[in-house]
Design a protein around this nucleic acid. Structure first.
Lengths: 212, 212, 212, 212
DNA sequence: CATGAATGAGGGTTCATTCAT
DNA sequence: GATGAATGAACCCTCATTCAT
């Protein structure tokens, strides 16, 4: 009895999430209307409000599972010591970019947004913020393990991780509105991305040496 | 008579552009109202439509002079051979970032947007596109002169300039929604930005050497 | 089986009535949501529709028992000849006001409404109307017994009872949206209310005399 | 040029006010929609927002002139010492009731509302509140002049004016939703209203005497 | 009997834009 | 050339109510 209903409900919710996901990704959060989402999800726009308090909550709930998965995947890669440190950080970077490009637009807004819009919005996503911080800490750690900096060199690490993050952010934001599929992009640019990180890591190394 | 009128007309147009420029920069394109612009420009909102077909055209026309100035400044820096190549490219990068952060929000959309919004809008900015290409070609040239690549190495140059552009894009997009003023950001991060480019250039150099 | 079910059913209905009663009293009919009622009643909002055709019917059915009780209480006071006539009418008035203030908002709408809303609603409460008439007839009778008018003086009585009713209505409607509890109001204004009726009754008496 | 336009504008505003006035009076503030008002006013619902910031402001602006006129009329009657004190207060009362019945519903909400809804609404009508206070002070003064109370008897006056106000409020609220026109009501009940005040004033007088 | 799912109608409000002057 | 008046489309969201289970 209730099972069938539950199933149907779950389906509806999923279809809303899927619709919102796609629309947010293509047109951006602000430009998408609840009615549009409903139409694509095949339900009334009021139905959305059964499952999500408002548009903002829809965005956040939409983001959480994907981000959680990203986190656990990155963590696994970080802790997989079968690979050397440089391979580890490259794998992590690659996966991170891949994720961002696949979930273009929406997650970018969430992940990349750092200090933005602090002024207006009442900071409703503390959970997401925590997640974001954790994600970056994984990247940081991978970088530290690669650079083998002594713990004194906090400044050096901070500076390097900033630079490293600029590159990630740059790659993702360059292509995040592109029409090309994430797959195609990787086919075309995978080597460039890899090179980018190699250049960076090489640069880090040599500059470090120069300072000694 | 007609002269006086033309003058007045030109003034009105200018005041609209100035107002829109400031408001777009501060609040972002979407968040700014035609009425707001009109108010700040000291005219009626209908007057704007005399000079600009619609809000979008206003944005584009608004961007042109600023971009033209940027271009000529960058070109001057490129051709100023009093400085060594590495200083030249660093100066160019720095100015580019500065410009983007000062005109955050609006010009970013225009400069950074590559293939974006292809889905919806009928690509109305061919002029701007040309400008954008010219801007990037300046960056490219500066890079080439620094790397002293032979003209055979087109692939190498393309790859390097992409990577270089990622870094620029990364820095700008990281801070483009920040509340900090461009000035404050530079005060705080100028050294990091410089380091970023040094790391990159160092990386380019050493990797190049390694391949030899 | 059926007995148990009936019992449960009756319970649900009662809990709905109780919930609606309290909510209507506190927030007013319009401001209360069916879902709110359901929540407080501990059932689904659709369940309400099993027992009550719509929100309006719920209000009417809700009112009946309370009004019936009011009627029987007032009647008892009217027939309690241990008290003198002036005490009787004062007790009745006081109780009437008390009731209205305690059940402010909802019963007011019903009790006080005379020819209201004729424009829109198809007058669905004939039962309630009868009750209302009975209530006022009690007040009338108490007044008549106090004034000891001969049955010829129908006009005089009508006029007096109208005036008397204005005072009741005035007191109740003055405070019916007040935040103060009925208790607090009485603590603060009981003496004023009593005085109001005394003034009125005194006025009736002396004017009567003057006419003789 | 501009004159014709101004005229048209003024007309539109007036038609909105008239429409809102009538609808608020008939159906009550809450039940009336902006679209309804616009329809009856013969304009788009957005046009209303040109002239009034929002629905609430519409109500307030709507009320102000009528209330101001009421105030000046009552004041004139108060200061017209050609009439004896009892005639003065009766004329004032009558006019007050007349006004309330003619402007039934809306002005009632404003005039009669004393401490109501203090909890929710952010008290946006300080101007109106001042007006209300002034109106009641006129009634008070008329009563004081009639009763010729010494200034020591503040309590006595307060109590009397409260009771007097209950009667006013009672009469108005009894008929304020009636379908009968204010004119018809007066034809039918003018004598009763007058009697009500006579009874009250008589009562005040005699009770006072009794206390001496 | 009871319920969760779903909806249509409608709420106030905003905004880019057009039209008559 | 410039403007105030006016509008339609669209925004997010709420609610009483119905339907399938």
């Amino acid at each position: 009895m209730s099972k069938k209903q539950e199933l149907r409900s779950e389906e509806t919710k999923k279809s809303i999430i899927t619709a919102a996901y796609e629309l947010f990704a293509v047109k951006g959060y602000e430009a998408v209307t609840m009615r549009e989402i409903a139409k694509q999800a095949g339900c009334s726009h009021t139905t959305i409000y059964i499952y999500f308090k408002d548009k903002e909550v829809l965005l956040y709930e939409l983001s959480k599972p994907a981000l959680l998965e990203l986190k656990s995947t990155l963590k696994a890669k970080l802790e997989d010591h079968k690979l050397p440190a440089d391979e580890r950080i490259k794998a992590i970077s690659r996966h991170f970019i891949d994720f961002c490009l696949m979930n273009h637009n929406m997650y970018l807004l969430i992940i990349m947004t750092q200090s933005s819009r602090v002024d207006q919005e009442p900071q409703i996503q503390p959970e997401l913020n925590t997640l974001r911080i954790e994600l970056f800490s994984i990247l940081n750690q991978a970088l530290q393990e690669y650079l083998q900096l002594s713990s004194d060199d906090k400044d050096k690490l901070l500076s390097c991780s900033r630079i490293y993050f600029y590159m990630l952010q740059g790659i993702v934001s360059t292509y995040h509105l592109s029409e090309e599929s994430s797959e195609d992009l990787f086919k075309r640019l995978d080597r460039t991305f890899e090179e980018a990180f190699e250049v960076l890591l090489t640069g880090f190394r040599y500059r470090e040496g120069m300072h000694d």
